[in-house]
Computed example of a mutant assay.
Amino acid sequence: MAAQTLDDLPTPALILDRAILRRNLKRMSERLRNAGVMLRPHLKTAKSIEVGRMAVEGHDGRITVSTLAEARYFADGGFKDILYGVGVVPSKLPAIGELRRRGVNLRVVTDNAAVAKAIADAAKNGDTFSVFIEVDSGGGRAGLPWPELPGLLDIARILHDAPGVELAGVMTHAGHSYHESTPDGIAAVAEQERRAIVGAAEKLRAAGIPCPIVSGGSTPTAMHSRDFTGITEMRPGVYVFNDLDQEYIGSCAPSDLALSVLASVIGHYPHRNQVLVDAGALALSKDISAQEFKPQVGYGTIVDAPAKDMAVIACSQEHGFVGAEEPIPYGNLPIGSRVRILPNHACITAAAYDRYYVVDSELDGGKSVVDVYDRINGW
């Protein structure tokens, strides 16, 4: 049987360029190793054992996930040190305990004293837990607000004093780095991130409470931080694939985007200078993050477009409306022809698919499918 090409695939399909993926992984791996910081990649982007194994190559294997489904999937794949990076609730502690009894060091996160007490109580039944306290370093999503850090010592003492509970350390996610678009701006957020978690760790240690792990996050700060002093690990995620948002932030170059959506042209509409493709909101997502820096990207840009600024400018559920800044040469895009669309946000676009069709631009320009990687979706 002949090897599949992109023309053989059903559309829409999720395409991953292995050559670009490997370059992205190598760049981050070397950057953090040279900085003396451990890499705990956030695999919520890839949700793939194959990508996860490549991401931790040369490191100690620690990873981050965002759902219990991911935790089980990566545990089944042999990963043993897993941070479940979303605030835990007491109802999920039995599932956490079940995985830990399998020999998986599944760690949880909280910023709440009542949850800390629930963890301590659950440990009385024989389960063990490893817990991070989350700090809000400026992103405004979750965590104890820095610099006040209200309740930090109370939460820490509940955890530290509970038999069977390990206070693993402190963590943060500098999500506000996604709104910067210059190296200096991102570096300033990275320094804010560093000061927040290092400050929290120092406060714990001054109170006689150990804080072994000081964990930062975000691809932009991992790429642009100028000082990692006091940080023990970083948890970048989207760097494995990159996307239009990361390109315009300045975390990567246009040639570093490994992920695209393959779509078919299904309609020509010269009266409005548009074509239709069979990749709509469910195939691309309605994330518009990159529009903050370049509105013309719409819901994704067309690879090797035959017209300037060609992008999916509107979406319905299964239709993508493709427009351009100049007249579209319809002869270059006959009905049934294929286009590849670069997503605004790789994590959310990829969540629509159960597999990656893997190509390799260093082998044949990325025309043949060289592998298929599975993904874990849902919760």
Rank of each mutant, 00 (worst) to 15 (best):
M1W: 10
A2Y: 07
Q4A: 15
D17F: 02
I20V: 13
R22A: 11
R23E: 03
L32T: 12
G36E: 09
M38S: 15
L39Y: 12
T45Q: 02
G52R: 00
M54C: 13
V56R: 12
D60F: 14
G61W: 01
R62C: 13
A69V: 02
A75I: 06
D81A: 10
I82F: 08
Y84G: 00
G85F: 14
G85M: 09
G87Y: 04
K92W: 05
L93K: 01
R102I: 01
T110C: 00
D111I: 02
A113M: 10
A114W: 11
V115S: 04
A123K: 14
G126K: 11
T128K: 15
I133T: 06
V135P: 04
A142M: 14
L144K: 09
P147Y: 12
L149N: 11
L149W: 10
I155E: 08
H160L: 02
G164R: 05
A168K: 07
M171V: 14
H179L: 11
E180W: 01
T182M: 15
D184K: 14
Q192L: 12
L204T: 00
V214P: 07
S215I: 05
G217H: 11
G217T: 02
M223P: 02
G230L: 06
M234R: 00
P236Q: 04
G237H: 03
D243F: 12
D243W: 04
L244K: 00
Q246Y: 05
I249C: 10
I249E: 04
P254D: 02
D256F: 09
N273M: 07
Q274P: 01
D278I: 01
G280W: 04
K286V: 04
I288H: 12
I288F: 07
A290H: 03
Q296G: 08
Y299K: 12
D304W: 05
M310R: 10
M310C: 04
V312I: 07
C315R: 04
G320Q: 09
V322F: 05
E326Q: 15
T349H: 02
E362K: 13
E362C: 07
S368E: 13
Y373M: 05
R375P: 03
N377R: 08
